[in-house]
């Protein structure tokens, strides 16, 4: 890692750095500085507009503490995370396995791909009324909606990855005596792994949109409902609390996916670190 960083830094820059420059180049120092700058900017703007437009950071913090202490925010987070996790997990498992199958058995893909593409092209919000008719106003509808939001990007990305397996490596494995299932295990799966993560990254984002939209528009629970309620009642300070939770959740999930990718794919040289 340091090696490639060195390559990108000119010798002149590396030598004769001032203490301040060294401090400023520290990742954590930079992050802290930018956070302070952000809150300061927020404070300045909030002092110059009515609180109905933008509450001050202190008011938002107070509302966050209040909602956490009352248990409302924690309960809502649970109500959101649960159907989100279930729907996303099912989408990941089905999307990945079906994507692999379709990537490898091209005749099956030629039959199914058009349907998958049609379903993928329909904006998922259009499904929501139908799911309510089918599954009622409850958890099941949310789970199905999250699933439908996440499964297609996972499936299509993994399918593309499995299809792209290097035909030369397949030939090498065949020359060594590899059977179909051995080749699947030794060549196709590992070469699809980066695509599995790429798909997951998109799927996580879509599933988050799915759960919030579902709760905001229809099922009236969880974080999504908090947006709707505090938005409609113009309690903006409280509106920001669920927003912070969702942002934290999204960042944490992204970090987790990046970390898993880094651990599970150690064989790739990285162009940028």
């Amino acid at each position: 890692m340091t090696q490639s960083a060195d390559r990108l830094t000119s010798p002149a820059k590396r030598n004769g750095k001032s203490a301040l420059a060294t401090l400023a180049s520290n990742h954590y120092v930079l992050t802290a500085l930018s956070a302070i700058a952000f809150v300061a900017l927020w404070q300045i703007v909030s002092m110059n507009v009515p609180p109905i437009i933008l509450p001050s950071p202190a008011k938002v913090a107070a509302a966050f503490v209040e909602l956490t202490a009352s248990g409302e925010l924690i309960r809502a987070t649970g109500q959101t995370v649960w159907p989100f996790a279930v729907g996303l997990s099912i989408a990941f498992v089905i999307g990945t396995s079906l994507g692999l199958v379709l990537g490898i058995f091209r005749p099956a893909a030629r039959i199914l791909d058009p349907y998958i593409f049609i379903f993928w092209s329909i904006p998922n919000i259009a499904w929501l009324p139908l799911f309510i008719a089918w599954f009622g106003v409850g958890q099941l509808t949310l789970i199905v909606f999250v699933f439908v939001s996440a499964v297609f990007p996972q499936l299509l990305t993994v399918e593309a990855g499995a299809k792209e397996a290097d035909s030369f490596l397949v030939e090498v494995a065949r020359s060594l005596g590899g059977t179909k299932s051995e080749i699947l295990h030794i060549v196709v799966l590992p070469s699809a792994l980066p695509y599995i993560f790429a798909g997951l990254r998109i799927a996580v984002g879509r599933a988050l949109v799915g759960i919030i939209v579902g709760q905001l528009l229809i099922v009236a629970t969880g974080i999504g409902y908090m947006f709707q309620f505090y938005g409609e009642t113009l309690s903006l300070a409280k509106y920001f609390a669920p927003l912070i939770v969702i942002a934290a959740l999204a960042v944490a999930l992204n970090r987790a996916v990046n970390w898993a990718e880094h651990v599970l794919i150690p064989w790739k040289p990285r162009a940028f670190t």
Partner: peptide, 24 residues
């Protein structure tokens, strides 16, 4: 067979690539 383009599995270490000769 030894290939001009070699065809090592990028996700396998040197040792695992050689072991593949026996495994398959």
């Amino acid at each position: 067979m030894v290939f001009q383009a070699i065809g090592l599995m990028p996700w396998k270490s040197v040792q695992s690539n050689v072991a593949l000769g026996i495994q398959l």
